[in-house]
Structure formats: structure tokens, C-alpha cells
Design a protein around this nucleic acid. Structure first.
Length: 502
RNA sequence: GCCGCCUUAGCUCAGUUGGUUAGAGCGCUAGAUUGUGGAUCUAGAGGUCCCCCGUUCAAUUCGGGGAGGCGGUACCA
């Protein structure tokens, strides 16, 4: 029984064209991160499951969302599902020797055993920056600025994105203010999740999820949080105000006005009264606001958005989300909203899992794969990367000569290859065309007798062919090719390449 | 995971009310053009009609199950 040649579900092959775009993206991001003073760190893709903290509660088995297996000694191992958990492990392990605060960046593939969807894969790349060991809001403010600078460095125009920020403590405060029992964790999570879906389902959808539940277009039913109608109306009122505030901010900033973010905080302060968590949240939000405002980043690049929830468990303070705000058409002409392309926040308890010592930390991660998908829809298809000069093989007896020529080109720093297949000249030309070669080197018996080589410029040839309708005519004209003494091979090829890359 | 839709050539898709040789366009290979890619014409190759079980004289077509894909939803620490 032969196996079927098939790729694993949720995974994908990435070809040369996309890889070169990815390289460009990664080096751009790296440049920005290094400018902010972060230092590189690479950790393994595989970790012990307990180090990642992903055992199911009260069970001897890892969470279903992570790819896991048992090693020879029956220890559970898992593929990393983000870059933050391995970082916490690394910091805990090397705490004594690291400079504190420790500021590092990392990029790499992470893995999630979840249902794949459009633009959602089970292996994808993240580019992460974290500051460990600082409880200053300045560290959080930097994350927002870093995010904005990075998106702009990648070519996303100001106004086409926004780094939204909020604070987990504020949400906790709202829950307590809404008289939800603090010990009722399950219900709190349901409420958070419902609010997190605001941008997708709208106020009505969230209202349904806070109450009895919601039936979607396919007829499937989602159980709701079952809150009392009075409590629900409080939430909806708050979210409606948050949306209204966002619209106001957008409108004022679009017309070049100055948005008074402090009045939003004042209004919240009034509505919460004296509540410990809410006070902390508002103080932190204000510090962040002052810092971002002073740096000039509160001009629409970053903004307080009270509907941001994210990070349902481990975030402990400020949370950020990078969102693309412009609509984009996909290959089928449908408008897609890409939404979130990155996020982060403060997590003060992750290292303490290992050491017992509370280590404040904050970070931000860009979803590289997702962002690249968005950018490629915006920028259209990139050119295929330039291929090698192809040395044609006309006489099989002279392979040694052809290969010598090829080496000559390579030694001169020119990407080149001799045709290694077995087909005739016509097929070799097609091959060079498909490889996107700048030119081919032809030496048949005529040229060899004269000590020459013929160089055919494929780029010029393509242009010439566009103007000529009759095949015989253009073949006889032999456009865009020249014969030169073999000694000048490298120089002439250099000229052609320079002409097309210049 | 749950709900719905889908699966025919390398790709995009027709089609068979259950019946002999299942089609198109594009792509691919070759010829027209003894040594020249992209135009044109001609020819050719390429299919377990997703898989298994059932109904039937006969299944790519009908029924059941499965797998894969798409969309929604849940999960996304």
C-alpha cells in the first residue's frame, strides 16, 4: 500500500517567493526590535510540558490544544504554543546571571493543536519582545511604541493600524462592580469571552452570550453566561459607551483635532467610585497615557479602547492589541477584515511559577504569518525571485566545458547553473524561463569553433517578442542575444545582470 | 468538538434522470521551426469520477459510514 502524498492538516509548504518576502519582513522587524535595545534569544521548539504549564487541571495529561507526546522515560513533552512560556522558563533557570531588567526578542514557529481556518494554521511564526523585571509603565508604553514603529517599518501607513490598549484590572473591576461572585471563575471566563467577541458579533451577539445564549447562522447553539438582565444591561451600556468613545476618537483625530483621553478616564473614575482594582487600572492607564502622549504616540497610532479583553488567564495589567483598520479584498474579491495582527500585555506571575519570586514582566508579539498574509493582499503578488544564469547543454560530450563555464560564473559571484536535465534545447530554454533566469549561455559547435559563447538576454528577449507576432520572423532576428569571445563571458553576463537589477 | 455545504485530469470546473469509449479551458509534452523560452496552429500524454460498505443485472451517479476541503460556531492558555 503506497502512502498518499499529503500535507498534514493545518500545515503548509512555503515556496521561494513567499520565503524571500518573509526574510525581508523578519529583518525589518529585527532591526526595529534591536533599535529598542532587545537582545536575541533562541529557545527550543520542544519543552517539557510541565515547564510550559500546560497540564490539564487535576489530570496527568497535557491540554488538548498543545501537540504533545511522551519521551522514552514517559515524561510529557510539548511543542511550544507561544514564545512567552519558554522565556519564563529560561529566565527562571538563568535568573542569577541575567541582567535585570532582561530584555530579549525571539522569533520562531509556534504550534497549536486547534482547528485551522482561513489565515489560521497549526504552525505559525511569532516575533516577540519582552521586558522582564520591570514594573514600570514605561516598559509597557515602550511595547506600544515598538508595535507602532514595527508596523510602519513594514510599510503599513499611519492611520491604517491602531495599537489598542486597556487594562485587565479594569475588566476585573467591572465584573466585581457588576456583583459577579469573584470566586465564580468559570462564569467570569464566560463573560470575558463574550465581551471579546464584540467586534465580530456586535452588541446583540454579546448580549445574547451574556444571557441565554446565541444561535449562529449554521443553526448551532452556544450556551450563554445566564446573567441577570439588569447585569447584562450594565455590560451592554458600558460596551456601547466604549464603542461610542472609539467612534468619537476616530472622528476627532480624522479631522485633525486633539482627542482628550483624560476625560474618558475621568468619566470612568466617576462611574466606578472608589474601587480598588478600578483605581489601579485607571492609574496605570493614566501613566501609560501620559507617557505615550509625551512621546507623541497618542495621535491615533495608539489609543485606549475599553473593549479590548484578550489574554483571558495570564495577563495581570495592561493589555495591547495591534489591529489593521483598513478593509482588504481577498483573491475572490471578498472584503476581509484582518483585525488583530499582534498583541501583548503585562504578566507579573509567569516566572513566579518556577521560582516563587514575583517577577514583573511585559511583552508584545507580532503574528508574522498573519501579518504577511495581510500585507501580500495589500501589495499584490511580489515578483518571483531572480533565478540563476543557465548554461545550456547542447552537446552532451562537452559537459565538462559547460560545467567549467558555470564554475567560472559562480567564482565571479554570479548565481549560475548548468542544465542538469536530459531534454533538448527548446525545453532548456523553457526551463530557464521558468527559473526566471536573467540570461542563458549557449555554446554549440559554431561558437566553439570560433572560441565564442552566445549570451541570450531573456528579459530583453521577452520584451522583443511582445512586439513580434510572427514566430519565424523573430527567430530569424534572434533578438537580445550576442556572441562574444569566451574570455569575456563573465564581463558580458555582469553587464546584463546589472542592466536588469539597476 | 458541534452545525451546514462541498470532493470528477496538475489547476478551474462541466457532465452522467444508474448503462459500453467521462469532457472543456488552462497547464504539461511533442511537432510545425537540423541550435532558441514568451505569439499561432496541430497532435499527444494525463482520471480507482475522495475511500469503504450496502442496494442493484449494472454505481462516478442511489443509501449508510469514513476521510479531506470550505464556511459558521466553540476552543485559542
Amino acid at each position: 500500500m503506497r502512502p498518499e502524498a499529503r500535507i498534514a492538516k493545518g500545515f503548509r509548504d512555503i515556496e521561494a517567493q513567499e520565503l524571500s518576502g518573509l526574510d525581508d519582513m523578519l529583518s525589518t522587524i529585527r532591526e526595529v526590535y534591536e533599535r529598542y535595545g532587545f537582545v536575541a534569544l533562541e529557545t527550543p521548539a520542544l519543552e517539557y510540558t510541565d515547564a510550559l504549564g500546560k497540564f490539564l487541571p487535576d489530570q496527568d495529561r497535557p491540554n488538548a490544544g498543545v501537540f504533545s507526546f511522551q519521551d522514552d522515560d514517559e515524561q510529557w513533552m510539548s511543542l511550544r504554543y507561544d514564545l512567552t512560556a519558554p522565556l519564563a522558563r529560561y529566565v527562571a533557570q538563568n535568573y542569577q546571571t541575567l541582567p535585570k531588567p532582561f530584555r530579549r526578542y525571539a522569533f520562531g514557529n509556534v504550534y497549536r493543536n486547534e482547528k485551522p481556518g482561513p489565515g489560521r494554521f497549526r504552525q505559525f511564526m511569532q516575533f516577540d519582545a519582552d521586558t522582564i523585571g520591570s514594573d514600570s509603565m514605561a516598559a509597557d508604553a515602550e511595547m506600544c511604541m515598538l508595535a507602532a514603529d514595527t508596523l510602519e517599518a513594514l510599510g503599513i501607513k499611519r492611520g491604517d493600524y491602531v495599537i489598542k490598549l486597556c487594562n485587565r484590572k479594569l475588566l476585573d473591576g467591572i465584573l466585581e462592580g457588576a456583583a459577579i461572585d469573584a470566586s465564580d471563575l468559570a462564569n467570569r471566563v464566560v463573560v470575558f469571552r463574550a465581551i471579546d467577541k464584540l467586534d465580530r458579533l456586535g452588541l446583540d451577539g454579546v448580549e445574547a452570550l451574556l444571557g441565554k445564549g446565541r444561535r449562529d447562522e449554521s443553526g448551532d447553539f452556544t450556551e450563554g453566561a445566564g446573567l441577570h438582565p439588569v447585569v447584562i444591561s450594565k455590560f451592554i451600556g458600558f460596551l456601547r459607551a466604549a464603542l461610542h468613545e472609539n467612534a468619537e476618537r476616530t472622528r476627532i483625530q480624522a479631522s485633525g483635532g486633539r482627542y482628550e483621553w483624560r476625560s474618558l478616564l475621568d468619566a470612568l473614575r466617576g462611574s466606578f467610585g472608589h474601587h480598588k482594582l478600578a483605581d489601579e487600572a485607571l492609574t496605570e492607564l493614566e501613566s501609560l497615557g501620559v507617557l505615550l502622549d509625551a512621546a507623541g504616540y497618542f495621535d491615533g497610532r495608539t489609543a485606549i479602547d475599553l473593549s479590548v479583553v484578550r489574554g483571558l488567564e495570564y495577563y495581570t495589567g495592561p493589555v495591547f492589541e495591534a489591529e489593521l483598520t483598513f478593509p482588504v479584498k481577498d483573491g475572490d474579491g471578498n472584503t476581509v477584515r484582518f483585525g488583530s495582527v499582534g498583541g501583548g500585555g503585562r504578566y507579573d506571575d509567569l516566572v513566579a511559577r518556577f521560582t516563587g519570586q514575583k517577577v514583573p514582566a511585559t511583552g508584545f508579539a507580532i503574528g508574522v504569518s498573519r501579518l504577511q498574509a495581510a500585507l501580500s493582499l495589500v501589495n499584490g503578488r511580489k515578483d518571483t525571485p531572480p533565478g540563476p544564469v543557465v548554461v545550456l547543454v547542447l552537446d552532451k560530450d562537452n559537459v565538462a566545458d559547460y560545467q567549467k563555464m558555470t564554475q567560472e560564473l559562480r567564482n565571479a559571484g554570479i548565481s549560475a547553473e548548468m542544465y542538469l536535465g536530459s531534454s533538448g534545447m527548446k525545453a532548456q530554454m523553457k526551463y530557464a524561463d521558468k527559473r526566471n533566469s536573467p540570461c542563458v549561455i549557449i555554446q554549440g559547435s559554431d561558437e566553439r569553433a570560433k572560441g565564442e559563447v552566445t549570451i541570450k538576454d531573456l528579459v530583453e528577449g521577452a520584451k522583443a517578442a511582445a512586439a513580434i507576432k510572427d514566430n519565424k520572423e523573430w527567430k530569424e532576428a534572434r533578438p537580445a542575444q550576442l556572441s562574444v569571445p569566451q574570455a569575456q563571458l563573465v564581463d558580458e553576463v555582469r553587464k546584463i545582470i546589472a542592466r536588469h537589477r539597476g
